[in-house]
Nucleic acid binder design. Structure first.
Lengths: 193, 193
DNA sequence: ACCGTAACACTAACCGTTAGGTTTTCCTGC
DNA sequence: GCAGGAAAACCTAACGGTTAGTGTTACGGT
C-alpha cells in the first residue's frame, strides 16, 4: 500500500535512461536502421527483453524525451488563465514546441527522424494520439461549448500546425499563418448568442 | 522502347489480383493478425518473394483497392469546372469518399482495419501522402494564389475532414460541420484585392 | 532461332518482438 | 535482522515480416 520510495525506482529509472542514452548515441553515430536492438541491448549491458520492458518499440527509444509533449498541449488548454481565449493559448504553446524542435541542438535528431520512414510514421501516429487528448481537454471546458466533432477537428488542426510549421522554411511565420486559419475556423463554430 | 502489349502484363496483373484477393479473403475469414504472409503466398500458390514484389508490405495488401483514392482528391481540384470555387469541390469529393467507406459493403473491411493497430497506422500515413499530392494540386492552380504553407495546411485539413467524418456518428453532418470550418480558414487567407 | 529481361521460385537469413520460465534485487512486516 | 513477496532483469527460443542471393522459366523483340 505504501508508496514505493527509493532505490528500486532509482535503479529502474537509471536502467531506462542508460538504454535510451545508449540507443540514441548509437543511432546518431551509425544511423537508426544500421543499429539493431540486440546491439543496443549489448552496449547498454542489458537483456533484449529488458529494453522492451522499458520501451514499447524500437521507435519509442528515439522519442523518449518527447513524452512530456503529450500533456503540454492539453495543459495549455486546462491551465490557461480563466479569461484567456483558447486559440492564443494554443498558438503560444505550439510556437514554443516548434521552437524547441527546431533549436540547433535538436538538428541531428531531426535529421535522423527525417531519414527513416519508420520514425516518421511513428511520429505521425504519435501526433494523432496527442490530438485525441487535446480534443478531450477542449471538450471538457464548459466555457467553450462546442460539439465533439468541432473539438476533434480543432485538435487535428492544431497538431497539423505543429507538424507543418516544423517543416516550413520560416517556422515562426508558418505558425502565424496557420493559426490565422485556425482562428477563423474556430470562430465560425461559435454558438449563437 | 516499344509499348509492352500483351500476355506478360496480363499475367502479372492476374498474379497481383490473385494475391490481393486471396489475402483479403483470408484476412476476413480468420483475422488480419492470424494470417501470415507465408500462408497467403501458399494459398495464392506463389512464392513469398513474389508477394513482396507486388506489394511493399503486408498492410498494402489490404489497401490495394484504395490506390485510386490517392488521385481523386487532387483531381477534384484540377478537374473542377473553371469557375467552381475550390472548397465546395473538395467538400463534394470528401463526402463521396466518406460515403464510399461507410457503405454497408465495406463494413467488414473497416472493422478489420479498426481492429489492427498496424493497419490503422498504415492508413494514417497513407492519408498524409494524399495530403501532399493534394497540396501540390492546390498550389499548382494559379487562380488560387496562396502560399505553399497555406496550401499544405488546407490539404491537411481536408484529409482530417475525411478521417474525422468517417469516425463520426453522422458522417454527412460531420462533413458539413468540418467544411464550414475549412471554408472559414480558407477565406481568411484570400489575397487582398 | 535467339537473346535480353521481367516475373517468379527457393533458400536462408536478418530483425523486431514476444513468450516461457528463472534468477536477482529490493521493499516490507514481523 | 530476516522471511516472504514482488518487481526487475535475465536467458533461451521462437514467431512473423522482410530481404538478399541465386537460379529458372516464359515472354517479347529482333
Amino acid at each position: 500500500m505504501t508508496v514505493p520510495t527509493g532505490r528500486r525506482e532509482r535503479k529502474k529509472a537509471a536502467t531506462r535512461r542508460k538504454i535510451a542514452d545508449t540507443a540514441l548515441r548509437l543511432f546518431l553515430e551509425r544511423g537508426y536502421d544500421a543499429v539493431g536492438i540486440r546491439e543496443v541491448a549489448a552496449e547498454a549491458d542489458v537483456a533484449v527483453t529488458t529494453v522492451f520492458s522499458h520501451f514499447a518499440s524500437k521507435e519509442a527509444l528515439v522519442f523518449e524525451q518527447d513524452e512530456g509533449f503529450e500533456q503540454r498541449l492539453a495543459q495549455a488548454v486546462t491551465n490557461r488563465a480563466p479569461d484567456e481565449p483558447l486559440i492564443p493559448a494554443l498558438r503560444r504553446e505550439v510556437l514554443a514546441l516548434v521552437r524547441h524542435c527546431t533549436a540547433d541542438g535538436a538538428a541531428p535528431i531531426q535529421r535522423m527522424i527525417a531519414a527513416s520512414p519508420a520514425l516518421r510514421q511513428y511520429e505521425d501516429s504519435m501526433r494523432l494520439r496527442h490530438a485525441e487528448s487535446l480534443a478531450a481537454a477542449v471538450a471538457a471546458d464548459p466555457a467553450l461549448a462546442r460539439t465533439g466533432t468541432v473539438c476533434r477537428t480543432l485538435a487535428r488542426f492544431v497538431v497539423d500546425a505543429y507538424a507543418l510549421a516544423r517543416e516550413a522554411d520560416d517556422p515562426d511565420a508558418a505558425v502565424d499563418e496557420i493559426f490565422r486559419m485556425i482562428e477563423a475556423a474556430w470562430e465560425v463554430t461559435a454558438p449563437s448568442r
